[in-house]
């Protein structure tokens, strides 16, 4: 068994496409219309084009808002992405206007930071395990 795809709920798929590609730097993998206005929209890391896809899933279900509001209020991230250098990535994203709820924090061998993806989620970046 492999983890082939995982998802985050997004308020607005067009906005999410912009943030996850133009700001974060992922590349679009699939973009297929589903129903009247939704899309099957996935992105992958340019470092791993055949790697795990991230589905930017419409947050239309009424339970999603309650769930995500509770997480965001407490600063809990919904997904984690690996980077080589958390501090450098923080500087880059901060310079692009990304809002961080946790600045880079060194905790033993791991450094993490948490930012707002502008689509309703907090995302954690962490150094890759060596």
């Amino acid at each position: 068994m492999k983890i082939h795809l995982t998802s985050v709920f997004v308020d607005d798929q067009a906005k999410a496409e912009h943030f996850y590609t133009e700001i974060l730097g992922f590349v679009k993998k699939h973009d297929v219309p589903v129903g009247e206005k939704d899309r099957w929209l996935t992105v992958v890391s340019p470092e791993e084009p055949e790697g795990t896809e991230l589905l930017l899933e419409p947050a239309g279900h009424p339970a999603v808002k309650t769930f995500r509001d509770a997480l965001v209020q407490e600063g809990i991230p919904l997904a984690q992405f690996a980077v080589d250098d958390v501090k450098a990535e923080y500087q880059r994203l901060h310079g692009l206007g990304v809002r961080f709820t946790q600045e880079p924090l060194e905790m033993g061998p791991v450094t993490t930071a948490v930012f707002d993806d502008t689509c309703g989620n907090l995302i954690q970046i962490a150094t890759k395990p060596q």
């Binding site: 407490e74 600063g75 809990i76 709820t101 946790q102 924090l105 905790m107 033993g108 791991v110 948490v114």
Partner: peptide, 24 residues
């Protein structure tokens, strides 16, 4: 050390820096 932390950051610091096994 740093004022203005989310509950998540406080929990992370307690578990990762201080090895405190404590629930949210």
């Amino acid at each position: 050390e740093k004022s203005g932390q989310t509950l998540f950051e406080i929990c992370s610091r307690l578990s990762m820096k201080h090895q405190l096994g404590i629930s949210r």
